[in-house]
Design a protein around this nucleic acid. Structure first.
Lengths: 198, 198, 198, 198
DNA sequence: CATGAATGAGACTTCATTCAT
DNA sequence: GATGAATGAAGTCTCATTCAT
């Protein structure tokens, strides 16, 4: 995180990050110019370099910041059931669709070292449901055909929200949450009692 | 300087498309230069313009070609059960991971009119499982909490393969197919008999 | 790399316009590259785009600027006789041969909308002698075979200076002025008294 | 004249020259591509090189061909009075507006050696009225303020037709001819008797 | 802290030209 | 005589980045 700890420029910094987030999500990192970010923020392109050493750092900061905040939020609210995690994940991301979107669309725009660091953070976060599923299977609470594929499929399902969710859609956050918990429970073959506990 | 001895247009065209497919999948449309595509094909950048009027057309042709081939393949092999569709979809895409990948990662790189056309093709294809699910529900064969969310989630699940599948991975195509059919059957609450029919 | 020590925008702008004027006059708009204009100004080609959005705008600004300055100069010095106009026109243009030259050689290099705008300015200016001639005829001071052709021929005569005038030629500005006034007076069949009033 | 004396390809050659003439007149030499000329002729760009070694040769052939034909036509019809020349010049050019146009708009597109050759042809042709004027002055038939300027002005006037003449205009060729003869006679101060001899 | 001027590289694209077929 | 494939240079323009002010 190359952030220049500006004292007064905090507001500009936030505006820059928001502009970059919006533009990266909409047009893709490679298609967004520093000038475009600057214009949206009301400063000159040159001014960005007071806050970020390179364009790549803007992206990296955004992704790293998102992953750290995500982990922190989970740890804070916590929970121990897979359905807790699903509820948390859906809710957290649906209120931050742009972060969710770039967070897995722009991995390939990261330079190797930055990619490695974000991938680590991501693995840490995905270890949470992975472990829950493995434990559920071990305890006999879950019943799956293949642990690895099922785990990956569930993670893909959760990330897939990105693909179709639109903030102005007809579905409420609550509805989506409920359906996703049911779906995941069914995928892992959770006992019927659990399914009703939604 | 002139025609390279022994070169034919058809061959160069195919080489260009393959190079573009590979590079777009790996680095993203916006990050790939015409020079890079040309270099991979062994021609000069200018030569590409004998085959494609613009860079955008390379992408569009790739995406439209993929969608048309996909629909044609489904119609040919066909099937009537949701599990037929899942098996087809997984198998078709896992043998064409690059097409699958750009096919939903690069939608945003399309210019408006091209975007509209690909979206139409996509909707046509996604209507297949959508209808199967709706009919299953109508017949009482399926049992879901919310048709819309379930349908979208299933489509997202299937597309999500992109995210984690690696050709050199440890899992065989057959295994993945089997697991995905089970997962989808569970998601739609298909009766037990069906699930065993995998 | 960054601002060249001591450089100001205004100066660079003027240098760019002068370089473009010179090159357009000598080689023609289409044959002049942005690099060539830049090189003559001592900047990189990209720097031009701080001052002009496109190459076309350089030409348009040059032509529009010339026409506006021309009209302003006439209005300022003014006069009411056709010979006043001829004297003004010759003198103004012979001290600005490059502007005069591109001003009617490069009309066809203008994009449609720009062309229309310059043509309007041109018509406004050419309306001055046109009206003088028409009035002269109406008053019986002039005697012509065909008003329209005569007017156009006079305008063509005046613009034709471009074709042969060279700054280093043997003829003085005064001489050319005198001859042109006589010629135009004869063309409109002005009474003998007037001709002697040169 | 780099013309390949094609036996059968004569028709293609003529079509190429006509296409080039049209396009050079409309858009200017530098702005016209070999492809554009080829497309208008219905052949591939490469085929042009069977007829002309370079693009420059197309222009040169057009200009040289025009000048030679012009001189030949004058010599054939001939005449001895300035008014004969004016009549000839106007008539010849108004039926070949494109040749007339490029003939003095595209001089600057010629490479040095080609430029020199065309300029010689041009001087030869312009020597005709120049000599007539000089002789008229010597004989006392004409009365001018300055021979040189008057001569150049007359030539400019004649060439200026290019600027405003449109084939579909309201004026007949005859009318224009008549007016121009009168104008030129007045410019040289020809005696009244002559002027009526139009 | 920010602007405004500029760089140098590189983007997409077009061009005149060449030559195997 | 002509096509179709290709080159290599150059075109306009945009970009990330730098730095004097």
């Amino acid at each position: 995180m190359a952030r220049t700890a500006g004292s007064t420029g905090t507001e500009t910094l936030e505006r820059l990050q928001d502009a970059a987030l919006e533009l990266f999500a909409r047009e893709g990192y490679a298609a967004v110019s520093m000038r475009a970010i600057a214009a949206r923020t009301g400063v000159q392109a040159g001014a960005i370099y007071k806050y970020f050493p390179t364009k790549q750092d803007i992206l990296f900061d955004l992704l790293a910041g998102h992953m750290l905040a995500l982990e922190a939020a989970w740890r804070e609210g916590a929970g121990s059931e897979l359905s807790d995690f699903v509820r948390f994940h859906v809710r957290y991301h649906l209120t931050r669709p742009r972060e969710m979107f770039i967070s897995y669309m722009e991995l390939r725009s990261l330079e190797p070292e930055n990619f490695r660091r974000i991938r680590e953070l991501r693995r840490g976060y995905e270890a949470i449901p992975r472990q829950m599923i493995e434990e559920g299977i071990a305890k006999g609470a879950f019943n799956v055909v293949d642990t690895e594929v099922t785990t990956r499929a569930i993670i893909a399902l959760l990330n897939g929200l990105t693909t179709w969710y639109r903030e102005d859609g007809r579905l409420s956050l609550d509805e989506i949450e409920t359906v996703y918990i049911t779906l995941v429970n069914r995928m892992v073959g959770a006992g019927e009692e659990e399914e009703e506990n939604v």
